[in-house]
Simulated scan of single mutants.
Amino acid sequence: MSIENLVFLPDSPYTEWIIKRSENLFPGLNKYLVIVDDITKPTRFTNSDIAIIESKNLIKAPVLLDLSSFKRVIVNYHTPFIGHFLMGRKQDLSQAKLIWIIWSGDLYKHPSFLTKAYTSTTLAALPPEKTVQAWKQSFHHRVLQAIGKPNKYTFEKSFSNFDFVASIFEKDVEEAESVLGVKAKWIKFAFLSLQEMFSEEYLKNRPVLGRKIMVGHSGSPENNHLDVYHKIHHLLPENEVTIFSPLSYGNPTFISAVKSLGREYFGDNFETLEDFIPREKYYQKLAEASVAIFNHKIQQAFGNILGLIFMGVKVFLNPENPIYIELTNSKIKVFDYNQMTRDDLLNPLSPEDVENNRSTISLLFKEEQIRDYYRDLYIA
């Protein structure tokens, strides 16, 4: 049996789950690669069947000298090094279909999303871009391009080579087309089942939710916390509810601005979580909220959002967010952040809405559905 699929994977805890699903459906047909910057550092997976290649050696890696047998190249999280490989070995892969599975960061870290992802308030809190530094970086990448090394220009061009793009969010595919020039067919795809994302029974049987309002999931500027704090302060001027924001990672300058405004507006009723904690403890913390607000304009924090909805939390999303669009189209009860009122913040989700949300999520991410997604991907 010959190997048909070349599968690029990131160094992620999800890598082995993806391989297990792929092998259950198409055993022995896949070669798995993880590209790392430093091969001497430990990885977040233990599967010995995965070939680990340093990024600087990818284009000439011995295991990739002969590409003629591959019918598909499946890219989980597209990077400049993979883009350089795809462009440099384009002729060798002429018989293969190229499939890009969007992981959010590989789409939304593109500079063109700066104004799309951040509000003006967020941009004002970030360090100003230094024109000279930006010019130097641009010149550096032109030099890299001239000498045949991985660079941002070749990377951007590589997006147009994909034949298929996989995501559960149709708007992600539309954004990839408008910003990156991707002219590919859409394959609807989700990585994990409900059981893999979180324990269904554990979240369903959480004790009565608390009354805190959760804002954002990290210290990344894409959360646009500051606008949310302004809005809550206006709607609840008496500070009668505790505001809670996880800030365990992100932009240090932005995190400082978030904490400063949070303390100014909410005083002792402002809480942060700045340490990484085990998943069960994390969900225990999330259960202290009855309302959660995510002001992302782009797709982020999908697992957090689904877990909160499943627990019965009332979730507000920016209507530009692909997650808002997908969930509302699926008849899951989430709320438009732009239409948020005082009563919305003070009144929890109804028991009927909680139960409907749970049953709909269970259907959308049931085991059989995820298996079908993987099957569609590997027969594209």
Rank of each mutant, 00 (worst) to 15 (best):
P13V: 06
P13I: 05
Y14V: 06
T15G: 04
W17K: 11
I18C: 07
I19Y: 01
I19P: 01
K20Y: 04
D37N: 05
P42C: 00
T46G: 05
N47S: 13
S48M: 12
S48K: 15
D49F: 10
I52Q: 12
K56T: 15
K56S: 15
L58Y: 01
A61K: 02
V63D: 10
D66P: 03
S69I: 10
N76I: 10
Y77I: 07
H84R: 02
Q91F: 05
A96G: 04
L98S: 08
I99S: 09
I102M: 06
I102Y: 05
W103H: 14
T115C: 11
A117Y: 00
T122L: 10
P128R: 13
K130S: 14
K136N: 08
V143Q: 12
I147S: 10
G148N: 10
P150S: 13
K152I: 15
S158R: 04
F159Y: 08
F162L: 06
A166Q: 07
S167P: 07
I168M: 09
D172M: 06
S178W: 11
V179D: 06
K188N: 07
L194G: 10
F198C: 09
L203Q: 03
L209E: 03
H217R: 07
E222Q: 02
I232D: 05
L235I: 08
T242P: 09
S245P: 01
S248P: 03
F254A: 03
F254C: 03
R263C: 10
R263F: 11
F266E: 01
G267Y: 07
G267I: 08
N269M: 04
T272Q: 03
F276I: 07
Q284H: 12
S290F: 02
V291A: 10
I293P: 09
H296C: 09
F302E: 09
N304A: 05
I305Q: 02
L306W: 00
I309F: 02
I309M: 04
F310V: 05
G312A: 02
N318V: 06
N318P: 15
P319D: 13
P319W: 14
E320V: 08
N321P: 09
I323F: 06
T328Y: 05
N329A: 11
S330L: 02
I332V: 13
D336A: 08
Y337Q: 12
Y337F: 15
Y337S: 05
M340G: 04
M340F: 01
D344M: 04
S350D: 00
D353L: 04
D353A: 08
V354F: 00
E355L: 07
E355C: 03
N356H: 08
T360S: 12
I361W: 02
S362P: 00
L363Y: 01
F365Y: 08
F365M: 03
K366A: 04
E368F: 07
Q369N: 14
Y373T: 15
